[in-house]
Structure formats: structure tokens, C-alpha cells
Design a protein around this nucleic acid. Structure first.
Lengths: 239, 239
DNA sequence: TTTCCACTCCCCCAAAATGGCGAGGTCGCG
DNA sequence: CGCGACCTCGCCATTTTGGGGGAGTGGAAA
């Protein structure tokens, strides 16, 4: 952790990975290169499913999942609301759930110092890239100071790769909406009733219904609200 | 655009800015340092309000707003769906609206080459950081190759600063939803009817209605669909 | 301690949305 | 030329929502 090491080989290895499992190898490589305790890439799916590439012990990972720590982990909770990379010391560890969690984590090999970078993708995807170590505050401040930028870039590359690999697994097919359908959906999302929308678009309310039904069908939605939610999360309409 | 220039002074200037107007000066500084036509930081508020720090001409910016180009700009539309930085050539310019937009843009001083980095913050905030220039494909490929990483970092710093400055202007007006309200909104967004949601949450349909109405009130929404759309665009629920 | 908020439950009724049936027209593409 | 996609319109029955009341719990904050 003394002088700054070159992380370019790691970034290249990261760009070259072609399977989710390989991400774990990159975390190990990165951890060893940086000479710290742990590197964690933790991604939370839009449905709440989580996936991680971490150097943590198997037991800690299992324990984390088993106790549903996702719900109380102050790192997740804190980072979810902000954009900035954050030092763990600046998070809120005051609740008793957080204290218990921290104690448990330290007992399972997690270091006392942490630096996490929240990062977001389309469709509400959220991920966290974390560097973790055991040392005093001064040493950690020095580390985050010198590697902050690299960690941001690495977080970006990790997330890009994860999204890329995930996309291969689920090739989401979505037919585009017609212009009129987009108009209708947009106005509905803005809170107008069908009558108001029909009036706004200068068409009969029945015609409007045809658009809505057509859009619902295309989006595989069960009702109008669902269609709006789907269209929004797919970026088909902007509100 | 030949040899790689040092961008550290710009990053430091960026970190030091303390007003939104100063961001514009940084874009100019950055544009001149890189020797390209334009640098644009374009942020879209959760409510659809936009703010930008760009080196574009006043007339183009006014025209963009006036014609509501936000809705058809292929750069916005394309980047909203992805995480990767993207070269403008790889976007979908096939629609006639896109072609008209492009023609108009080129006539107002926008370069033919572009490289945009989508970036997201909490509460559904979305922003775009763009480098724009007039040159051939080869020269542009060389530029993006050598400055890609720096642009990612700059996008990150721009966004961080914008969020920081914006937070000062609007001190958290939107009240958060209660856990039950989030549950209700989420299930509704997934297409369930009130009866189904009530059953899923093991509460009476009436209780559910109270949550929905409460959420509607908090979000200032006119109906359920509007509430869902608002909650989604504010990042209060994730679907 | 009192006050506020989140959470839970009940009634009734009007308005809105939805589903199913039908009918036409234009436009572009193979 | 036919086919499909888009745009436009009408009626009727059913389901879903929204709006108006009122009432009780428990926990957290002031």
C-alpha cells in the first residue's frame, strides 16, 4: 500500500472477461495488487436479486444472504441515496441493527476500513464497488486519496461488464410504441384521465382506448398502470 | 488533438467550483484544452426539468428547448437505456424525426462526431456528459480511444458537482413514502389490481386504498397511474 | 405526556376504466 | 395486389377506482 501501483493490467483483464465467474478472479487479482484485504463488486437487480464478485469468505457471503443483511447493511442503505463515493466512517452506524451487523462482519474477516462507490445502470440497476481493509484512519485516508480515481474507473468497468454479461443472459425484446401510443402513454403518466388525454390529442376517447390497449399488448402489461411503469423503465416514454 | 494533454488542472477546477454558473466556465476550459468543438453536461431532473452546462451556442440551446428536442434527441433516447459510454455513430438515427434533428443540429454548430457518457444519480436523476467535434471517423476514434477514461472521470465529477450544487438549491422537498406505501406502489406498478395487491400484502382492500391515497397526496399525483409514474421518476420505487 | 404518524379496519356510491363486439380509412412493403 | 401496421370511430356490460364519511392501535418524536 506504499507507492502507487499500476492498475492498467487489471483494467485490461476486466475488459477482456467474458463470464461472470471471471469477475471474481479479477477481484482477487485487484485485491492482491492493491495489497488490501478485500475487493467487492455487489450488484442489486431491479427485482431485488443480488449478485456479487467478492473476495470475502464463503461463510460471510452465505451469512450475509441468510440473514438478509441487504436490508440493514448501512453501506447499501447509505450508498443507495447518494452519488458520491463514500468512506464507511461517514455512514450511519448508529442503529443497533447496524452495530450488530458490523460486529458480525468484523468477526467474519471484513476489514474495519471501507470505501464504496455507488453506481447505477438503466432500469433501476444499482451496484456497489468496495475496497476494504484493516488499518488505521490515517493509512486508509492515504489509500483512498491516491486510489480514489482508479476505484471510480474500476467501478465503472466492473459495472459495465456485469451489465454486458447479464444482458447476454436475458435478451430483452421490446417492440417500440407508435408515436400516438407514446403520446397517449406520456399524457397518462402525467396524470390526465382518458377523457382529458383524448381531448388533448383531439381524438375520440374510444380511439385513445385502442392506443392504450395496443400499447398494453406490446408491452405485455396487465393494465394501464403496469404499461406506464413498463414503458418508463424501458425508457420508451419520458416524464 | 494530437498528443494527450493533462486534464488534472481541469478536474481540480471542477472540484473547486461552487456555483452552477461556474460549471459552464469549466466546460469552456475543457473544450479549449482538448481542442474540440464542444463539451456538454446535460442533466435531466426527476421532474423532467433540464439543466445544462454547454459550450453550444445560445441559439442552439434555445432552439433545443423551444422544439422540445429532449423528446426526440437520439442521444438522450439512446443513452437513457444503456450504461456504456456511446459513440454517436452507434445510435439509432433512422427515424425521420432524428434525421431532422441532426440536420438542425449540424446547422447550429454541433459537430458531426460525438461521444456521450450516461450517468445516473439517486432519485432517478439522469445526466449526459458529451464531447463533440467535427472530424472524420478515424480521428474521432483516436480521440475517444485516448480520452475515454478521462471523460468517464470527468462525467463523474461533473455529476457529483451538479448534484452537490443542486442539493443546496432544493432542500429535499419530496416527502418519502412509508414502507407500506412503497410496497403498495411497487405491486401496482407490477400490474396487480387493488384487490390482488391487498391480498398480497395481507391487508384489506380499504387499507390499501388509504396507502394509495396517502402516496398520491405525498407525491402530488392526480391518480394512481400518475403516482406510479412520479414515484418511479423520483426513484422512490424500482420496477 | 401529548401529539403526530404509520398502520389497520368498515360502510356506501358515483365516476372512471376496461373488455368485448363491431366498423371504416390510409400508407408502405413484398 | 394483398397484408399488416397505424389511425379513426361507436355501443354496452362489467370491473375497478376514487371520494366521502368514521375509528382504533402502537410507536416515535417533541
Amino acid at each position: 500500500m506504499g507507492t502507487k501501483v499500476d492498475l492498467d493490467p487489471i483494467m485490461e483483464a476486466l475488459v477482456a472477461t467474458s463470464a461472470l465467474e471471471d469477475l471474481e478472479r479479477v477481484t482477487v487479482q485487484l485485491r492482491d495488487t492493491l495489497g488490501i484485504d478485500h475487493i467487492v463488486y455487489h450488484w442489486v437487480d431491479s427485482a431485488g436479486e443480488q449478485y456479487g464478485a467478492a473476495t470475502y469468505s464463503e461463510t460471510w457471503i452465505a451469512r450475509y444472504a441468510e440473514h438478509n443483511y441487504l436490508r440493514i447493511d448501512p453501506v447499501i442503505l447509505g450508498c443507495f441515496q447518494r452519488f458520491h463515493p463514500v468512506d464507511w466512517k461517514r455512514l450511519d452506524w448508529s442503529s443497533k441493527a447496524a452495530k450488530a451487523f458490523l460486529k458480525d462482519a468484523l468477526e467474519h474477516g471484513v476489514g474495519n476500513q471501507g470505501f464504496s462507490i455507488p453506481i447505477r445502470g438503466p432500469h433501476g440497476q444499482f451496484a456497489l464497488f468496495t475496497a476494504n481493509h484493516t488499518c488505521d484512519d490515517a493509512a486508509w485516508a492515504e489509500f483512498t486519496e491516491s486510489y480514489g480515481r482508479d476505484l471510480i474507473l474500476l467501478a465503472h468497468y466492473f459495472n459495465r461488464k456485469a451489465l454486458e454479461l447479464e444482458a447476454n443472459r436475458q435478451p430483452e425484446m421490446s417492440r417500440a410504441l407508435s408515436p400516438r401510443e407514446v403520446d397517449a402513454m406520456t399524457l397518462l403518466a402525467l396524470g390526465y384521465s382518458r377523457a382529458q388525454v383524448a381531448h388533448s390529442l383531439s381524438i375520440s376517447e374510444h380511439t385513445l382506448r385502442v392506443y392504450i390497449e395496443s400499447a398494453r399488448f406490446k408491452l405485455g402489461a396487465l393494465n394501464t398502470t403496469h404499461a406506464i411503469a413498463t414503458a418508463m423503465s424501458r425508457g420508451l416514454i419520458v416524464v
